[in-house]
Amino acid sequence: MARTIAKDHDQKRAHILKVAAQVFAAEGFDRASMTVLAKACGISKANIYHYYSGKDALLFDVLDSYLRALRDRICGLALDGLSPEAQLRALLREILLAYQGADDEHRVQSSAISALPQSEQAVLRGYQREMVAVMKTVVAANAPEVFDADAMRLHEVTMSVFGMLNWYYMWQSEADAQARLRYADVVTDLVLGGIAGQTL
């Protein structure tokens, strides 16, 4: 007879993922063991194996859950009807708000994705590429005369925008929503000012 799924299965799984992200971020993926992870989660080692076959599977689920939700939020943002500048401002604000409370997942993404098999890395990098594509479209719309003929420059500016956003979690991890919105506007103004300089 198949084992029934407990009513709180999803809640426990979400708890394991959040704690695992904290452990992987603090200890490093290589140094974290299933024993350490189970203890940090407040469950037995046997119980954590009920949810995950090993720490590789757990790492993939941490990153897949995080990046898929981030992709859905960013790529699903309603931008139609907004001016190019308003689109950029709205997109940067949404990204920084989405990053709030996800510093551990962000660190794990940066440090441990390469520990996964290539097939799983491809899934995760696919989410990243989709978000980059949205950013490229919005950035390009602010200066088509610059970027339509220079794909490399568009890529460089787009990744520079992500660079400014992604470093924020390292030095303003406790920032509240208002601070994040303010910084998003700072980045927007820097990007628009920089683009304007390239069109002169």
Rank of each mutant, 00 (worst) to 15 (best):
120 E>N: 10
20 A>N: 04
116 L>K: 03
40 A>H: 06
101 G>L: 04
49 Y>E: 04
111 S>G: 12
69 A>R: 08
149 A>E: 09
17 L>A: 06
146 V>P: 06
58 L>F: 07
57 A>C: 05
153 R>Y: 03
140 A>R: 13
112 A>H: 09
96 L>T: 14
30 D>C: 01
20 A>R: 02
116 L>F: 03
73 R>S: 15
168 Y>T: 08
184 A>E: 01
119 S>W: 08
61 D>P: 08
110 S>P: 00
175 A>T: 06
6 A>W: 00
76 G>N: 06
3 R>M: 10
186 V>D: 06
26 A>K: 05
104 D>C: 10
138 V>D: 04
194 G>S: 07
24 F>D: 09
98 A>V: 02
117 P>M: 11
50 H>S: 10
53 S>C: 07
66 Y>T: 13
9 H>M: 03
145 E>G: 05
88 L>W: 03
35 T>W: 01
74 I>L: 14
85 E>S: 07
147 F>L: 03
144 P>L: 02
117 P>G: 05
70 L>D: 11
60 F>V: 10
193 G>Y: 01
103 D>T: 13
176 D>P: 06
34 M>Q: 03
75 C>W: 02
195 I>Q: 12
81 G>K: 15
148 D>W: 04
97 L>S: 03
51 Y>K: 02
139 V>C: 11
111 S>H: 11
130 E>L: 08
125 R>L: 13
17 L>G: 05
81 G>V: 10
155 H>V: 09
23 V>E: 13
152 M>D: 13
9 H>N: 09
97 L>Q: 05
38 A>W: 07
186 V>C: 09
102 A>C: 07
46 A>P: 07
129 R>M: 15
75 C>E: 14
13 R>I: 07
39 K>L: 11
132 V>A: 12
175 A>I: 03
149 A>F: 00
69 A>E: 13
134 V>R: 14
45 K>M: 04
93 R>S: 14
92 L>Y: 05
59 L>E: 07
174 E>Q: 11
34 M>Y: 01
137 T>S: 15
70 L>A: 14
169 Y>T: 13
88 L>Y: 01
43 I>P: 05
28 G>H: 04
127 Y>S: 06
94 E>R: 07
103 D>P: 01
187 V>N: 01
111 S>I: 04
108 V>P: 12
68 R>Q: 15
196 A>D: 12
101 G>W: 10
165 L>Q: 05
89 R>D: 15
71 R>N: 15
190 L>C: 12
157 V>W: 00
2 A>H: 06
126 G>P: 04
159 M>L: 15
53 S>E: 15
36 V>T: 08
173 S>W: 00
28 G>Q: 05
190 L>S: 09
144 P>D: 10
34 M>T: 05
143 A>W: 00
67 L>K: 10
